Every structure is written in structure tokens, then in C-alpha cells.
Simulated assay, not measured.
Amino acid sequence: MLYAEYTRKIHRYLLLRTGDGELAADLTQECFARLLAHSRRATIERPLPYLYTLAGRLLTDHRRRHETWRTDTLAPEQWDDLLDDRDRPDLLYESRRRMDAVAAALERLPQRSRRVFELCRIEGHTHGEAARVLRLSTSSIQKHLALAMRYILDQTRADE
């Protein structure tokens, strides 16, 4: 039942990363074989994320063993599949999780550091422009920005 429900998604996931239909099919089969073997030992509550994780690991293992990465281009008829990310909940979830972590870290910053970060990194102002807007020296802007970026980086890494 799981195979019928998820095989297309896993195959597409692997095809987009390899550009090789046969390799994607082989790795898809291996994913489901491992899922079956693992499910005999333990209950898998969320099989689709488990399958995506398995697929990524199998692909990494394959690439390590063969030490080559395909750089061929896809045929034009395969391009449409590249644009459709509706079946990519792993990417959507991860992007939202990271954005939420950055937003939460921004909220915890002191007001001035947060405003410097917003001006320079979100709105695209130069250090000099931000200094004029906030009536600070350029070196103060640089220090606030460095502190804000370090804090956000530390906080988002801690969430991982």
C-alpha cells in the first residue's frame, strides 16, 4: 500500500537529484526494501519523511561509492517536473522551519541591532545609508550588524 502511494514521489525526488531514470528507479526500490525491513523491527509512524531521508542517504552512499556526480542535462520533456515542488514537503518544511528560527532570533535581538539588521540585510541599505537613517557612525552599524548576524547564526544552529 505504501509503495503504491509513495513510489512516484520518491522516484521523482531521486530523479531530480540524479538526472538518471534507471538509477532513480533502483534507489527507489532500495528505499522500499529498507522500509520493509525496518518496519518488521519497529513501527514507522511517518513513512514519507522516513522514505525521503532514506532516499537522500542512499543517494549520498551511491555517489560516494562511484565518486562521480552526473552533470548531464535533462531532456526538455523532463523540465516540467523540475518546476513542480508540490510533492516536496521535506523542502517546504525545512524552509519554513529555518525561516521561523531566523524570525524568532530577530525578535530576541535588541531593538537597535534588529533595526540595523533589517536595514542592511533585508532592505538592502549600505552601512553608510543605515548610519544616516539611525544617526549612528558607520563603525557602530558594522558592529551592530556583526553582533546581530552572529547571534542569529548561533540561535539557528542551536535549533538544529
Rank of each mutant, 00 (worst) to 15 (best):
T28I: 07
Y50M: 10
G21S: 14
A24D: 04
E22W: 09
E129V: 08
D85G: 01
A25K: 15
I141C: 03
M99N: 13
R112V: 08
R12A: 00
W69V: 15
A131S: 01
L91W: 12
R150A: 08
R63Q: 10
L147P: 00
L106N: 09
G128M: 07
S39M: 11
A33G: 05
A148T: 02
L15P: 03
A42P: 02
M99W: 15
A146H: 11
L2S: 12
H38W: 05
S139N: 13
I122P: 05
S137H: 14
T126Y: 04
E129Q: 15
L23S: 09
P110G: 02
L14E: 02
R34S: 00
H11V: 01
R108T: 01
L2R: 13
A101C: 10
A104W: 15
S113I: 05
R63H: 13
E45Y: 11
P110Y: 04
H62A: 06
R157N: 08
E107S: 12
H38P: 00
R135D: 09
A105I: 06
D154V: 11
E123I: 01
D85H: 07
A104Q: 15
G124T: 04
T43G: 09
I44K: 00
A37Y: 03
L48R: 02
G124A: 04
D100W: 11
R70D: 13
L109D: 04
T138W: 13
R114M: 00
G124D: 04
R97K: 12
D84C: 02
L48M: 00
G128F: 11
T71V: 08
R157D: 00
S139W: 04
T138I: 14
I122Q: 08
E45T: 14
L136M: 15
K143C: 02
T73L: 09
Q78V: 01
L58F: 07
T60S: 08
A104F: 09
Q142T: 13
Y13K: 01
T126F: 05
L145W: 03
E123N: 01
H66K: 11
L59W: 12
S113G: 07
R17E: 08
D154Y: 10
Q111N: 12
Q142D: 06
L58C: 03
T71C: 09
D84I: 05
L54E: 08
R57Q: 06
A24P: 07
L82T: 01
D90E: 14
A130R: 07
V102W: 06
D84P: 02
R135H: 12
I10K: 11
L54I: 00
S140R: 15
L109E: 02
R41T: 04
F117V: 04
R132K: 09
L92R: 14
R157G: 00
S137V: 08
V116R: 05
L91H: 06
T60R: 10
S137L: 08
D26P: 08
P47Y: 02
H62C: 00
A33F: 13
A158M: 10
V133Q: 10
R97E: 13
I44Y: 01
E5N: 06
